[in-house]
Nucleic acid binder design. Sequence first.
DNA 1: AAGACGGGGCA
DNA 2: TGCCCAGTCTT
Length: 445
Amino acid sequence: MTTDEKHIEAQQEAKLFFSRFLLEWYHLQKRDLPWRRHRNPYYIWISEIMLQQTRVDTVIPYFNRFIEQFPTVEALADAPEEEVLKCWEGLGYYSRARNLQHAAKQVKELYGGQVPDDRDAVFSLKGVGPYTAGAILSIAFNRPEPAVDGNVMRVLSRYFRIEDDIAKGPTRVKMEKLAAELIPEGEAGSFNQALMELGALICTPKSPRCLPCPVMEHCAARLAGCETSLPVKTKAKPPRPEERLAALVEGRGEHAGRVLIRQRPASGLLARMWELPHWPAPPAEAGGARGALLPEAAALDRLRRSMSQAGILARPEGHWMAAEHTFSHIVWTLQVYRCREEAALPLAAESRAVYGAALVERGDSALGAESGAAHAGRGDSTLAAALEAQPAEDAPLALFDSGDAAADAADSGAQRWISREDMKNYAFPNVFLKLLNSYFDEQGT
DNA sequence: AAGACGGGGCA
DNA sequence: TGCCCAGTCTT
């Protein structure tokens, strides 16, 4: 027998060992999770979408609420989008929620409300890629398909000492091929979950717990002492900083006790979520330290102009607090200013057009009374009208690239005056949820 | 192939 | 506080 043949034989033995002992460990150690209590393909599907980029402990309460509110594919397909988004509030990557509902409509219309068990059909669902397709097919239908996520790539790269960069596309394909070979006959669902469970509980990114690992004896990385340097992965580039001025506008008169919020556009960052209005801060003065707080007067002036341009009748009064919001590609620093709504005064003819455009969206219709789609496509004309009607002494804001065209286009979106009670009807990103709660706490309302 | 797209846990 | 985690869609 040649050296190569011996190597192949040893490799084969390592694979058999791995599959057998991992599966045995899983049957003894698996966690009791809500989506493991039934083998309902809909539950499996929802859980897998939620588990993308999100840990199990975070997902559990969201999963339970979601299933309670949308118990079936049809319930999800027929729900108002705002309700789905509200149910996803705080979970992040909100396009997952939109895609999920789109896919529910696909399942309802194309497959009679039954999650398909066919590879091409599952893969064609919006929001379902190679990993999720494999997870649904194997866990819900016990089909021998690989389900390779970050946990699986970490486990396999260590056990087989694979040094390929897991951030590269071809590496995932290679891992899928390997993972498929490891699936024991008739055990696809349990085996794929076992692989992920090991990655989550034992073979963790930082300091893997090798001693209780069921497959440590034949782990190539452990034997070579290099388990903490695997997997190889190119690191992401740091998020770019972005300074923004936000307005917490306190209502007066009929809006007393309420604050102004607006809805973001239908696409892009935080699509269709609600927020406090905010705009790019002007670049800091030359000589000033990067990220330095803008002089109060300059910030107040800037905010006054931004609000005026957005058709918000309010006067900035002073700095309230700062908040930070980190995305994977941007870091927002929000300087929040308290502002007071101004009573509408008799308007010059040319100013009326500015305010009129924004007032169209005002009102207090209940959740679901309108969809963001109703506003799509209106933005340009409204903004153009506002710019054109800008009074001469209040020159249009200098243009500079804020990097968030979506947020800046939100000037033409829907606005609402809300109390703390009304917050339950709108979906907010976490940073605004925290700001609004702080504000209402301070007010004692 | 690279960038867009949130939020939380850990040392 | 800074570092790490990572599926799918879009360009």
